[in-house]
Design a protein around this nucleic acid. Sequence first.
DNA 1: TCATGTGTATCACTACAGCAATACACCAGG
DNA 2: CCTGGTGTATTGCTGTAGTGATACACATGA
Lengths: 131, 131
Amino acid sequence: MSSPRHFDIQPQSGVPIYQQIVDQAGALIAGGRLAPGDLLPSVREVARSAEVNPMTVSKAYSKLEAEGLVERVRGRGMRVRRLTEGEGSVTQRKTQLEALLEPALARAAQLGLSADQVRQVVERLLKGYRP
Amino acid sequence: MSSPRHFDIQPQSGVPIYQQIVDQAGALIAGGRLAPGDLLPSVREVARSAEVNPMTVSKAYSKLEAEGLVERVRGRGMRVRRLTEGEGSVTQRKTQLEALLEPALARAAQLGLSADQVRQVVERLLKGYRP
DNA sequence: TCATGTGTATCACTACAGCAATACACCAGG
DNA sequence: CCTGGTGTATTGCTGTAGTGATACACATGA
């Protein structure tokens, strides 16, 4: 907890730096390596270790806050929120997922894939995420 | 076939014009309103009716061609392809779908949704597409 | 209080996506 | 052959997303 490498940023990857931070921080939280109540590494720490501008990190953190994953604590930093119940209800998160899945499934229909074939793909991917 | 309204383009929507054309043409093909062998409305026709530049339409058509939905016929126009069997194999299309689904499911994991909850959402959406 | 730590508002720079004006190559049909 | 129809390569403009340098407001802790 003292000095993790924070984030692994690859400026050339095509993926925006701030987005990489958002994704990796989100993954850390989802994976439980950052528990509710924990503080995210400070903007300047990350900026130094990843060799990017503090503002870029700040933008990423703001986005995490907008997503409700993290909250700002004056003078301390960004704290991981507890998003289990409350306004991050299961129903709400499902709706969010639905919005993400909808275009993909529309495309599947366009490709002429059957419902069963879609299920197969989904299952394969789910297995990958929870081995 | 003489003069459909072609496409309904909304320049202010935030979605790029060429993308709107790609999506709508794709939907027409998927819905069978444009059958294999049919010609897409010409670049200039669409450009006039949608009040955009022919090049923008051309870019959209090129993208459709790259996706394999349509083929170029010299001197005639763009013809809808038969994408059932052949190089558009089921396996290939599944891989394509997988690429689309992957980020959505990663996000689901990040949201803390279980595999079953993901399945529920998928089923709900599948029902919507094939009522 | 004040030194040091948070995050960030503001402004400016740069690269690139989206779009369009022009000119062009090609083909079908008369 | 020539006319009118395809699609498009080239070039340039413009808005904006991504990033960063600077300076700032606020909170903590000794």
